[in-house]
């Protein structure tokens, strides 16, 4: 399979084991979220995928090539957006993109045409002739994304692409990522904003303390009890109906409504039917946190308990 395949990858820096055991696959045409707490080894893992760092153990395949032995082939096909915002400060946005394109072997005309396309794509047209040092954090982030796309790579590695972006730019990023996946590209996105990943990722890679969670662990975490938020136009009736259903003890009631732990989706459906049947005017009935966040917290808790 092309795309990204990572098997048993480990990397330590002296005594620090940044990545201990990472294994996952991302299929072409899909978006995977790379999720983990700070210091879990996300950036180290991405550096290894981006041909910058050699793993101590394990194998990596990017678009079918090994980043250690065939970095050149990988670089041709891989676009990397780093978490550190680096740009040549005195060059204009357009010049920076043209230079990047030329570094991928494009001719002068082709490179400037590509720069123009990208400037339009990431909405930096009004700033195209400005020096990159005057850009705001979010604008630099967009420039960085454009640079990762400059050679139309089939595999994209995005390290915290949404940080510093305003809500409109985030929505555009989401659309862009989905569109690129639709074109058959393989995309790995790391982010802390789980709600955001939820909307663009097809699958998730959970990384905690340098190790990826096994699929069965993820499945189990997904099945564990989670919180559902219920809102009603009539709070008192909601509370009494929850009491009737046996949730009086565990429900947390606040001024927005109630939060109830439920083990599974059928349980949720049953409770909703009960509430409606009791005549509670329910205006909202949804998981309090997204799927990714739920699994993330659950795995972290499991990690802490262990």
């Amino acid at each position: 399979m092309a795309g990204i395949t990572v098997t048993g990858v480990a990397r330590s820096f002296g005594e620090v084991h940044a990545v201990r055991d990472a294994s996952f696959e991302v299929a072409p045409g899909s978006v995977a979220g790379l999720i983990g707490p700070n210091g879990a080894g996300k950036t180290t893992l991405l550096l290894m995928l981006a041909t910058l760092l050699a793993p101590d153990a394990g194998t990596i395949r990017i678009a079918g090539y090994d980043p250690v032995t065939e970095p050149h082939q990988v670089r041709r096909r891989m676009g990397w957006m780093p978490d550190v915002l680096g740009s040549w400060p005195t060059l204009s946005v357009r010049a920076a993109l043209t230079t990047s394109a030329r570094m991928y072997g494009m001719g002068a005309d082709e490179a400037s045409a590509r720069a123009q396309q990208l400037v339009e794509l990431v909405d930096l047209v009004p700033l195209a002739e400005q020096a990159t040092r005057v850009l705001s954090r979010g604008q630099k982030q967009r420039l960085s994304l454009a640079r990762a796309l400059v050679h139309d790579p089939e595999v994209l590695l995005l390290d915290e692409p949404a940080s510093g972006l305003d809500p409109a730019a985030r929505a555009e990023l989401r659309e862009l990522v989905r569109r690129l996946a639709g074109e058959g590209k393989t995309i790995l996105v790391s982010s802390h904003v789980l709600a955001e990943l939820e909307e663009m990722a097809d699958s998730a890679v959970y990384l905690a303390a340098g190790a990826t969670a096994a699929p069965e662990e993820v499945a189990r975490a997904g099945r564990s009890a989670r919180h559902w938020r219920i809102r009603s136009l009539d709070a008192e009736r909601l509370v009494s109906a929850l009491g009737d259903a046996g949730f009086g003890e565990v429900a947390v009631v606040d001024r927005f409504g109630a939060v109830v732990p439920l083990t599974s989706e059928p349980d949720a459906a049953q409770l909703l039917a009960h509430l409606i049947g009791s005549g509670v005017p329910v205006s909202s009935f949804a998981p309090a946190v997204g799927d990714l966040e739920h699994v993330f917290h659950d795995l972290n808790r499991a990690g802490d308990d262990a």
Binding site: A50, T51, L52, H72, R75, R76, M78, W80, P82, V84, L85, G86, S87, W88, P89, S100, M103, Y104, G105, R147
Partner: peptide
């Protein structure tokens, strides 16, 4: 400045 690695991932 963070520009070395972005050059090194190119060709």
């Amino acid at each position: 400045a963070g520009t070395l690695a972005t050059t090194q991932v190119t060709l």
